[in-house]
Write a protein that binds this DNA or RNA. Structure first.
Lengths: 103, 103
DNA sequence: CTTTCATTTCAACGATTCTTGAATTAACGT
DNA sequence: ACGTTAATTCAAGAATCGTTGAAATGAAAG
């Protein structure tokens, strides 16, 4: 991930609704969740959920696939991993305190 | 790091100036950099650098120590590590693809 | 073909954030 | 004391972002 991608990803994660959506999608696993369920779980109007889902999708952290009327969103762990790697390597220059933080 | 701290940290990293500051401070290492040098390296007015340094300091990712007239800023790797850990564990629930992303 | 359902798009408004330059605080050298 | 330097604070305006409800798209069901 490059600087521009990381900036977009950080901006996307810097919102309570969007962070909650990411967590929901991580929990949901490979099946993902459709837009309506996400809005309901979030307690947000569909238009609001859709707005936030779009900005998350723009970062690549979540992907959208349309089947008939419903759009299913899924977490993309590869992009999440790219962001973690950006933090550790590009941002923190591989500092051991950061690199070894999780076992 | 809790949700609220992570949200603040992500918001802070979601700005080109502030991301650049973090990188500068990582490069600078334990000696850190003072506010004036940061503003100069950034090509920004002192007030602008100070503004961004404050919001970074609020997240704990950088610390400020005042010696006479000059304020030295340093990166706090423990907090950066906390953010990485938040991403891997809280956010991605320890998914292997993310956890193993860096070797 | 009409209705219904899932979702997105749009426009308007309010809220937040960013930038700039001037004013301020505080410490230093003369 | 005086001027200078380092840094922050402040106020004003510009720019960006988030929320809301209504309208639009597009697919399924009757």
């Amino acid at each position: 991930m490059d600087d521009a991608g990381a900036l977009k990803a950080f901006a996307a994660l810097a919102g309570a609704d969007r962070l909650a959506i990411v967590k929901l999608l991580v929990e949901a696993g490979p099946d993902g969740l459709n837009a309506g369920e996400i809005a309901r779980l979030l307690g947000a109007a569909p238009s609001r959920a859709s707005f936030h889902l779009s900005t998350l999708a723009e970062t690549g952290m979540v992907s959208a696939t349309k089947q008939a009327r419903t759009v299913t969103y899924r977490i993309d762990f590869a992009v999440m991993a790219g962001l973690v790697q950006f933090l550790m390597e590009d941002c923190c220059k591989g500092a051991p305190q950061v690199r070894d933080c999780c076992g």
